[in-house]
Design a protein around this nucleic acid. Structure first.
Lengths: 342, 342
DNA sequence: TTGTATGCGTTATCAT
DNA sequence: ATGATAACGCATACAA
């Protein structure tokens, strides 16, 4: 059984295809005529073919959502919220994963060129600025979320204040008396990776605490980098008494290594992890974290694309900076002065 | 800058559009001519518009992947693997989430009718058999993974042997001396929910252990059903000494409640959870689980759609039943006879 | 092997 | 308000 076309509907309703088309796009149609057409569509269970519409229109209604890693609860949950938000705005989103691979990302981006999407919400790897620019040139609306690509202008961006969030975590540990604080953050080519490290260092400087370069680690998102960094840090002559894991993807790997090394938290090491997720609360002890406002991230990113798609939006790129929330759970302990001096 | 069309390429290469089209679809073209065309495409950075190709024939090459819940690590990770597998086969997958909502699922399914996808891999809610049938009637290849919809025939299916897996878990607990075993499984309208409960009951019967109906709970995937079931079970006059959480989505919720109730695992309660994920290993104690072979699920489901899309596949629906693996970690303890009799 | 002509389902233009 | 018809970009019989 072949799907009904617009012509079938027109015939059934005794009108021309133009009228049917206008009904579909709420054009000017006499009330009674519209009713007949609607009935005909119903009777034939007609559905306009997306491919055929996109062919003529430049107005593509669907948007793509590009996340770097679905196995990371943060991005999986972000995708979930964004899907919900998009549904509320009645726009179709197609989800794709780059798996933190620049080549895959590049492939997907060029494939997006062919597909007729009106916009893209993405947490980019940061390695394909030229490709992103091509999309922008094609008139595709760009909204970066959680991460951004500085080289691309004209794109909106939604994220937390990474430097501030990291500084908050750092100050918390400083207040508890820690002086040697290890930090595992994302690769330097990602905005989040840089900014969080910067915030951390700034907080240390502001407190007059020496910045130990050997305590600062940039670690790739994929692989066991987080675990290896943990081993390295704990193997130092002067190992850290506290650790901030700011590389969301490596939290699990880092925690696993700590367990394998039988490092007690917080007795041996105080720990703060970026990005809350339900499992962190189940750990023993429950982990203190920096929580990103998922709902807000989702809300604003969808809001921004929709705004541009509907045409109602200033042409200038907009940047939404959200505060992160520090959640104290009990994975950090105060150092007594004797230990601090050690 | 407007994207180049097939006509532009033809002009640039000094050939007709049909030649270019044949180059795109590896039709018969003289070697030298093909070279010229390829060069022209390169020069114009030409990319065939997906919408235009789909319009002609249902040569649709892309497939949709429908998962019910991205916040559930099992499905998020399954989606990740399937994406990888699909990439290996060089086919585009668009990911969508039904969020365990039958209405959303229905919407997505009808939207898939308009979109030109060649196939769908899905873990269905089980509530929209008619919609699924419509897709099948339209010639869209269906592969159910992890769950299935019995009412739809003609669809392939890939999943673990749920009953067997549940029985294995149950026998494990029986061997340890447990006689009152609680089970929290998915809703009765899902295949997995039914089969796991059946396997559990069969194992009990085979061992001559009375089946306590009050110990069997079907719990919805969304919400706090898992936690509530835990409270109920532990509040019974004769509470269970062991618990199987076979509702993947409710594992986290159930564990959280156990922690809140200060129920010690395994001292007060032995626990087995369905679907391994990296976080379970980090818990204290690490949780014993029934692990589904993610890679195999992904491999076969992609293999099946691709087979049908390429046309090389028997017309009869195929069913792939995979064994699950029981992972013993230490969240179950042996009951001494005195306790068992209690 | 290559070119011509036509169709795919929809929207846009321009009459009526 | 409605209708006829030309695009849109590509694939494909069929002819050359």
């Amino acid at each position: 059984m072949k799907p009904a076309t617009i012509r079938d509907v027109a015939r059934e309703a005794g009108v021309s295809v133009s009228v049917v088309s206008r009904v579909l796009n709420d054009g000017p149609v006499a009330f009674e005529t519209r009713q007949r057409v609607v009935d005909a569509m119903e009777a034939l269970s007609y559905r306009p073919r997306a491919a055929a519409r996109d062919l003529n229109r430049s107005l593509a209604s669907s948007v793509a959502l590009l996340v770097p890693d679905l196995t990371n609860p943060f991005f999986a949950r972000l995708a979930d919220r964004i899907a919900t938000e998009a549904r509320a705005h009645d726009i179709q989103v197609v989800l794709m994963t780059t798996q933190e691979d620049p080549y895959l990302e590049a492939d997907l981006l060029t494939s997006l060129l062919d597909r007729s999407v009106g916009g893209v919400i993405a947490a980019p790897t940061g390695e394909n600025p030229e490709q992103w620019r091509k999309l922008a040139d094609r008139g595709i609306e760009l909204v970066f979320v959680s991460r951004t690509v500085d080289e691309v202008d004209g794109a909106d961006s939604v994220s937390i204040r990474n430097a501030e969030a990291a500084a908050t975590a750092t100050r918390r540990l400083l207040d508890l008396g820690h002086r040697r604080i290890g930090m595992i953050s994302g690769p330097g080519h990602t905005s989040a990776g840089r900014q969080r490290q910067d915030g951390h260092v700034d907080a240390l400087r502001a407190a007059g605490v020496p910045v130990g370069a050997e305590l600062l680690r940039h670690v790739p998102y994929r692989g066991t980098g987080g675990a290896d960094a943990v081993s390295d840090l704990l193997g130092l002559d002067a190992p850290p008494t506290a650790l901030i894991v700011a590389n969301t993807a490596q939290v699990q790997s880092a925690l696993l290594r700590l367990r394998q090394l039988r490092t007690r938290v917080p007795a041996d090491l105080s720990v703060i992890a970026f990005d809350d997720n339900p499992w962190l609360e189940l750990l023993d002890p429950p982990l203190s974290t920096v929580r990103q406002p998922l709902d807000q991230l989702a809300f604003h990113s969808v809001e921004l694309v929709v705004g541009r798609l509907r045409g109602t939006a200033p042409s200038a790129p907009r940047v939404v900076d959200l505060p992160a929330e520090f959640i104290d759970r009990g994975s950090c302990r105060a150092l007594v002065s004797a230990e601090a001096a050690l």
